[in-house]
């Protein structure tokens, strides 16, 4: 048992040092998923995209100015994901913006905005890819926002303080995004001996465990942004909640 704990510990320490922390949000790279899995994840993501489009369409018909707002919200999400988070070691990491975007704009709008942002990240920054767009959209624009939104609503209803719900929504939304990515990779490349479970341990060990400190810093930053907004821009926050109501319907 002692030996087991020791080897696990040394693994985590090793992986934290070896992995480059300056990677952008880790999207699955172009060409990394086989054809069938690309198709499957795209098929799974499309219904959410469709629902998101329908809910946006409905809101836009009532209030045409929402379209401009969504355009700027999407650009904001893109720029947010390109901001460097300051870190101790001097290396840089990036926010996913999943938590902040979801709390501000709602999970429905995020599925559409997230998909578009991922297309631009692939074409303008070479992060992620077109063939893996379905898988990346599913993890980052469907699972992440849904988890973040669920946690936020649940905690708010339970009477938790705002900072706690914002922190947990952002941190867990970020973490669940990468757990989904690990599941996608594990399903596509199962181990010959241990099958999907063994490869899930392997991929989650690389993509999700290393993400924990980043998830915590994303949570902290989201709380800072929220504190600032509630202190200085209460009116804007209330006006922005138009988008969220559309997400709830």
């Amino acid at each position: 048992m002692k030996r087991y704990i020791f080897s696990m510990l040394s693994y985590f320490i090793l992986i934290l040092f070896i992995l480059p922390q300056n990677a952008y949000a880790m999207h699955i790279m172009e060409g990394y998923l086989p054809f069938g899995w690309c198709g499957l994840w795209t098929a799974l993501m499309l219904p959410f995209l469709f629902l998101g489009m329908r809910s946006i369409q409905r809101t836009v018909q009532e209030r045409p100015s929402v379209k401009m707002l969504l355009g700027l919200a999407g650009a904001f999400a893109f720029v947010l994901s390109a901001l460097k988070i300051p870190s101790v070691t001097g290396s840089c990491s990036h926010m996913t913006g999943v938590g902040l975007g979801t709390i501000l704009f709602g999970p429905m709008a995020m599925s559409v905005l997230g998909c578009i942002v991922l297309i631009f990240q692939a074409l303008l920054l070479a992060h992620g890819g077109l063939t893996t767009l379905g898988a990346n959209t599913f993890s980052m624009a469907v699972v992440g926002p849904l988890v973040a939104y669920g946690i936020y609503r649940l905690l708010q209803r339970a009477g938790a303080p705002l900072w706690a719900s914002v922190f947990l929504a952002a941190a867990l939304g970020d973490l669940l995004t990468y757990i989904t990515t690990s599941v996608q990779l594990a399903l596509a490349y199962p181990e010959s001996v241990g099958g999907v479970t063994a490869s899930l341990v392997k991929f989650a060990g690389i993509f999700a465990v290393t993400q924990i400190p980043l998830a915590v810093s994303e949570g902290l930053l989201t709380v800072l942004v929220f504190n600032f907004l509630t202190a200085h821009s209460r009116q804007e926050l209330q006006e922005l909640s138009v988008l969220r109501k559309e997400g709830q319907s």
Partner: peptide
């Protein structure tokens, strides 16, 4: 960075 994101 928090202020930057909020202002943005």
């Amino acid at each position: 960075l928090g202020i930057l994101a909020a202002n943005l």
